[in-house]
Nucleic acid binder design. Structure first.
Length: 769
DNA sequence: CAGTGGTATG
């Protein structure tokens, strides 16, 4: 009999392995039940795992299955956590993780942690990550490579690059994935030099290189304009046969385009399979170089290839049109966006339009665009208009733009400079004086300017009047020589007041800035590279007029090609001329001071970061309500509030708990857990707070507690769950899971109706909001 | 029985 069952079970397991859709699965399931194997651990796990994890599975169904598992084992928990971690609502993974820690006899293992960390990373739950980290250490899994890699990613993704690095450094061994995680962490956080630097360490450890490594490194190369490094990576990609990897190819295209080498980009493009990213990289690449025609060409090719353009394709397209002055085409594309391609224009698209009209001198039209856009309350568009007004010396529109900026409380020094320049152009001394006063009053707040230059695989960064470079002395000496030669070639230093010369670089505003960062970078580059090679410099701001002139003459005097990528576009200096044909004077700040970062995903970020805080967690309990399985909590979708579905006085059986929560106590969040020892009357309680309970709150809580034994417990990230468990042991004298099962600590606003009424009567509700 | 990673726009 046993043998027969085993062979049946094995047969079913084999069929399950090949299962690829839900309908089929349900048939197999029926078969399983017929054979009485529904409690076979391997089979039920396999079914659950398929439903939770597979693309052709079904998470709700997995949840349903999970609910009916009596004592889910670690693997079952893992399946459901993993399923949610990769789902559109990773927050539920954390919900299950918490329940696992509290409700389950099964403890977490390395898999649990790696799935949970993935969820933390995706929803940016830093505090939860810290806490999981605590649990990892406590359970002794901190030596596991995969778990640590998850931690590195999670910390990195939450902006804690240094912490990520610490975890990384403490790992007993690091595999390729771990290195890749560290590289992409640096790269995505904008620590490009570090990303490239760590690659050197990596090479010493013989872990090899794969597509992931290359993508991370290439992304950093494009940000800092490290073409030489990029070319080396290109070679490695060739050797490893990775050129047909779309990710690598796309990263290469982007790198070549951002480093100003469009031929290189084209070459890669021609030899690889393509996806949307590929096309976008080309369109954007040509667009930011001001090659509108080419951008349009690639756009049309993309359509022919049957790829649907998305908002980024249009951004590149409009940017190209705007720079090349293709107003009609740009307008046409802008309209087609929504009418033909069903892509909703975003603020950046509107920005391009304002810029396009503004640049073409159609300022009224630009004003109209802003009026028609949903972003009138955003300073960005007004700032673009202000810049356009400057190009065309239009005082009236300039003042309109400024008025709007000031109404939005968004005026900054750069704006004042722009308007002052317009006034100066109109010989309005008073206007200029007004702006000067305004700048003074506001205090000049500028983005510090810096320039990057790559010299023999090393990226060097300079700021204004930088003295921090080890070769500082040499650099300044060289700069003197360079300036002398440039002057002999005809360069005249333009130290006159920024306001009268249309410079729009913020760097010019920096106090008595004698040596802008790019001059230092140029001097350094000239000193450190062989004659005849070209210099590539990347700036975070626009090139100022003086530096632009300077670079022109340097390129002639030293017979060097100098390619400067500034915030907005490329300048190819050669023989005393610049590819932008001094267009830069007109190329305005446009997107330079875009602040839409603030708008994108604002609520989301703030909301989740706070909500996932451990004891404060407001993670919605979205467990589907299943009438068959008795009272439950659920999240009311329409109000977003968690609902209490259990009558307050329901006598509870084992595995249930009476629970109430108090929010915002003493400046933190609080929570009370009541425990039952197989009896409907709570025998002990634990009060948990993020900080300390306010005295009056404490009194209230204690008066509400139907128990004699209680304990106040401050919670700190990283140890909280363990603290709670320890405390349960202490308070109850034993650690009996059935007796003291904490249910759903996450339901913050879970206040039973009767309790709520009481709170309203006593005006105590304010503590809950 | 299982697990970790990637590109374009700013």
């Amino acid at each position: 009999m046993m043998v027969l069952e085993t062979s049946k079970a094995n047969a079913i397991l084999t069929v399950l392995q090949g299962c690829n859709n839900l309908t089929r699965l349900k048939k197999i399931q029926a078969h399983v039940i017929v054979n009485g194997l529904q409690n076979h651990p391997a089979i039920s796990n396999s079914i659950l795992n398929f439903c939770a994890v597979s693309i052709s599975g079904s998470l709700p169904y997995a949840q349903h299955l999970f609910k009916h598992i009596l004592n889910p084992q670690t693997q079952a928990w893992n399946s459901i956590i993993r399923g949610f971690a990769q789902s559109p609502s990773p927050v539920q993974a954390i919900f299950y993780y918490n329940r696992m820690l509290f409700d389950s006899v099964s403890g977490p293992d390395t898999f649990t942690f790696s799935f949970t960390l993935k969820a933390c990373e995706r929803i940016k739950a830093l505090k939860k990550c810290v806490e999981v980290h605590g649990s990892i250490i406590r359970t002794g899994y901190e030596r596991d490579v995969v778990v640590c890699t998850g931690l590195v990613r999670c910390y990195g993704g939450n902006g804690c690059v240094e912490i990520a690095r610490m975890v990384f450094d403490n790992m007993p061994e690091r595999d390729l994935v771990a290195w890749n995680a560290m590289i992409s962490c640096y790269s995505q956080a904008g620590y490009h030099q570090e990303a490239l630097r760590i690659y050197d360490c990596m090479r010493n450890e013989n872990v090899g290189v794969d597509g992931f490594t290359l993508v991370g490194l290439l992304s950093s190369c494009s940000h800092v304009g490290a073409l030489n490094m990029g070319v080396k990576l290109h070679r490695i990609a060739c050797e490893k046969g990775l050129l047909r990897n779309v990710f690598v190819g796309n990263a290469l295209i982007d790198m070549y385009a951002k480093c100003g080498n469009l031929d290189g980009a084209l070459e890669v493009f021609n030899g690889m399979p393509r996806d949307v990213f590929t096309w976008n990289s080309m369109i954007v690449g040509f667009g930011v170089h001001g090659f509108g025609d080419e951008a349009i060409y690639f756009f049309n090719q993309m359509l022919e290839a049957g790829v649907r353009p998305n908002s980024i394709a249009f951004l590149g397209l409009l940017c190209g049109c705007s720079h090349q002055g293709l107003v009609e085409e740009g307008v046409e594309f802008f309209h087609q966006m929504s009418s033909k391609f069903n892509v909703k224009p975003g603020i950046k698209h509107y920005g391009c339009m304002v810029d396009m009209y503004g640049r073409a001198g159609k300022l009224e039209k630009a004003l109209e665009i802003i009026g028609d856009s949903p972003w009138q309350d955003d300073p960005v568009l007004w700032r673009i208009l202000l810049s356009s007004s400057k190009i065309h010396k239009n005082v009236v529109i300039g003042e309109i733009a400024m008025r709007n900026l000031s109404q939005l409380g968004a005026v900054n020094a750069g704006d004042c400079v722009l308007l002052a320049t317009i006034y100066a152009g109109a010989n309005d001394e008073q206007g200029v004086a007004r702006m000067r006063k305004l700048i003074k009053k506001q205090g000049i707040k500028t983005t510090p300017g810096w320039s990057w230059i790559e010299v023999s695989d090393q990226v060097h960064r300079f700021v204004v009047d930088d003295q921090s470079h080890p070769d500082s002395g040499m650099i300044y000496q060289k700069l003197e020589e360079v300036t002398r030669k440039a002057t002999m070639a005809g360069y005249v230093e333009d130290k006159s007041q920024f306001i009268f010369h249309g410079s729009c670089s913020e760097e010019c505003l920096e106090s008595s800035s004698t040596y802008h960062s790019e001059k230092l970078a140029i001097a350094f580059g000239l000193a450190k590279t062989p004659e005849g090679t070209s210099l590539r410099i990347v700036k975070n701001l626009r090139v100022c007029r003086d530096c632009h002139e300077f670079t022109k003459f340097v390129s002639r005097a030293f017979n060097r090609d100098i390619i400067v990528r500034d915030r907005l576009r490329f300048h190819h200096f050669k023989g005393g001329l610049c590819s932008c044909r001094d267009y830069w004077v007109m190329v305005i700040q446009k997107l330079a001071q875009q602040q839409n970062r603030m708008h994108v995903g604002k609520g989301k970020m703030e909301g989740t970061a706070d909500n996932n805080n451990l004891s404060a967690a407001v993670i919605p309990a979205v467990e589907a309500k299943d009438p068959a399985s008795g009272p439950s909590y659920y999240c009311n979708e329409s109000t977003g509030k968690n609902q209490w579905e259990m009558p307050y006085d329901t006598p509870l059986v084992t595995h249930s708990i009476s629970f109430t929560s108090v929010r915002r106590l003493g400046g933190g969040y609080g929570r009370i857990y009541w425990f039952k020892h197989r009896s409907p009357i709570p025998t002990a309680a634990i009060l948990i707070s993020k900080g300390c309970f306010a005295k009056e709150c404490r009194e209230l809580i204690v008066s509400l507690l139907p128990v004699q034994q209680y304990r106040m417990f401050p919670v700190h990230g990283g140890v909280s769950f363990c603290n709670v468990i320890e405390t349960i042991k202490e308070v109850t004298g034993t650690f009996c899971k059935e007796a003291c099962c904490i249910c759903d600590q996450l339901m913050d606003s879970l206040i039973p109706p009767r309790h709520l009424a009481f709170l309203q009567q006593t005006n105590l509700l304010r503590w809950f909001n």
